[in-house]
Simulated assay, not measured.
Amino acid sequence: MNRFFTQATLDFFVAFGVVLGASMLAGMASLFLWQSPQTTMLDIAARIKIWAVVVAIGGSIDPIRVIEWNVSEGYLSPAIMQIAYILFAFLGAHLAGELIQWMCRSAG
Rank of each mutant, 00 (worst) to 15 (best):
E68R: 13
G74P: 06
H94I: 00
A107N: 14
G108I: 00
A26R: 01
L87P: 08
P63C: 01
M103K: 07
M41S: 13
I44E: 14
W69Q: 13
V66Q: 03
G108W: 00
F90C: 05
A84E: 03
E98H: 06
I64F: 15
L25Y: 13
A29N: 15
S36R: 08
D62R: 04
A93D: 05
T40A: 02
S77T: 08
P37I: 07
V18W: 01
F13H: 06
I50A: 15
N2Q: 10
E68H: 05
R3Y: 01
R65D: 02
G21R: 14
M81Y: 14
R3D: 04
S36C: 11
R47V: 11
F90R: 00
S60G: 15
F12A: 01
W102N: 00
I57C: 10
I83E: 10
R105Y: 01
R47F: 13
V14E: 07
G97K: 02
F88L: 12
A45E: 02
L25H: 11
I67T: 11
A8L: 03
A46E: 14
F12K: 03
S30G: 05
V66M: 03
M103Y: 07
L95M: 13
G21F: 09
T6M: 00
Q82H: 09
A26I: 06
F13E: 04
C104R: 03
A93M: 06
W34G: 03
Q82M: 09
I67W: 09
G92T: 13
G92R: 04
C104S: 12
E98Y: 06
Q38A: 12
G108H: 09
M41R: 09
F4I: 07
I100Q: 07
I83A: 15
A22D: 10
F5D: 08
K49P: 07
Q35L: 15
A26N: 04
S30D: 05
